[in-house]
Write a protein that binds this DNA or RNA. Sequence first.
DNA 1: GACCCCCGCCAC
DNA 2: AAACGTGGCGGGGGTC
Length: 504
Amino acid sequence: MPEVLTHLLQPGELRGDSKQIYNGLDCCVTFEVHSELQRLFNAESLIYNFERALQGPALEMMMRGFRVDQYERQSGIAALTKSIDKLNNVLQRYAHAVWGKPLNPRSTKQLQEFFYSAMRMPEIWISQKGVRKLSMNRETLEKLEIYFHAMPIVAVILAIRDLSKKREILETEVDADGRMRTSYNIAGTETGRWSSSSNAFGTGTNLQNIPPRLRKIFIADDGWKICGIDLEQAESREIGFLCGVLFGDWSYLDACEGGDLHTTTAKLVWPHLAWTGNRSDDRAIAEQIFYREFSYRDMSKRGGHGTNYYGTPWTMSRHLKVPVGVMVNFQRDYFGAYPCIPRFHRWVAQEIQTKQYLETFFGRGRHFFGRPNDDTTLREAIAYCGQSPTADRLNLAMLNIWKEMGTVVRLTAQVHDAVYFQYRVEDDEAAIIKRALELIQIPMTSPSGRVYTIPGEAKVGWNWGNAHNPSKPLGPNNEFNPNGLTKWKGSDARTRQSGLDRVL
DNA sequence: GACCCCCGCCAC
DNA sequence: AAACGTGGCGGGGGTC
């Protein structure tokens, strides 16, 4: 009970007018918390003041919302429903043949009974947090798929799940004015990232996990055009800079800044390939197949990211669907190429074991309450070093854009390492994007004098999806979208195609 | 019917 | 043996 009230209450008093008293107590708790926060977050508290400042752009985006093409959305729902119904009819025919009753593809319980009891297939167990589980996730179902009599059933189940997930998003309630309003939580994460969710009125949804293929339903306001700027290789560069500052080892940041990190990594990990030194030749070599559908470059990209974050060969081999031995060798060679990475891991372990605390170059600290010797704690701390500065960098840049360009641009969305805004089509597009790209950069200087910044990459268009590449055949990975976002190269010769936002 | 947890799965 | 991190959502299925 808050101290301020204890002397006012006698034992047993809460039994009487308890609701009013509880209410009073709650107010007192709030007051006591406020007093403590006042003490902690004084004028010197950089991060606290920063978070408060971010309320401006956050509230503006939340109140404005993102315009949705209702026709596009409804026709998407209709098309998906049709496909789902068709697939479901097929599934139910199988289900009745096998066990004489329906099967819900989203029910883990029913799927277990169906495959392991009715179809008598061998059980596939996985372990999560030390607990063995009879999962029915995609990975498990793909293992069941190798049995020929299960193959068509599994394929249908996975397809239904996939399409249902897409339909869920399209079915999210849009406000009466045809705009989707998300709720951004500025201070909801451990790292300084924002989170996003449905809003206080129950409409909208998380706008930070919309699959790329569905983004084209979000469109620019009439007379406005969308620009998106993302920070290139942001988390990798943050770690590269940290390694340089801590150890004077700039090899990883050099690789990031060299232009093509993943090809560079591939050259270091597989030095015996016929590298020429010519950038496009070497990229072509890196894009040759290494294992199954993975090129050397793919392996470098996905394997590098996982390895930076202390992923084990076992887990990464599962994720990349390659044998464990492949990942063991990859990591050995990767650590050989960038010795600052394992050194960085050891440094983080030392820090959390001695201080249980880390602070980024943006001044954001985090206490680690997990057991200091636990790998889980170490992994959280390693991830913090990349994720947190990226979040602060993007948000600081966004705040600067909002402050300086607030009359010229309308902020539209924030997606962790990318910010989207709109500008008037009659305005000087090149000048606006040039200035925004300048503001996105937050230079830092290492104690040794090296200047470090993360460049932004801009895209422009009239809807949030990616434009199709006209020089490649249309297909599932190149869907027709002439109004979509294209990479900004100083100009954009296109004009908005009316009615074509509506093509799904 | 409200509530809750688990599961599977989407993003960066 | 098996945990790369940060999040949010909807459905299933249980309890009250």
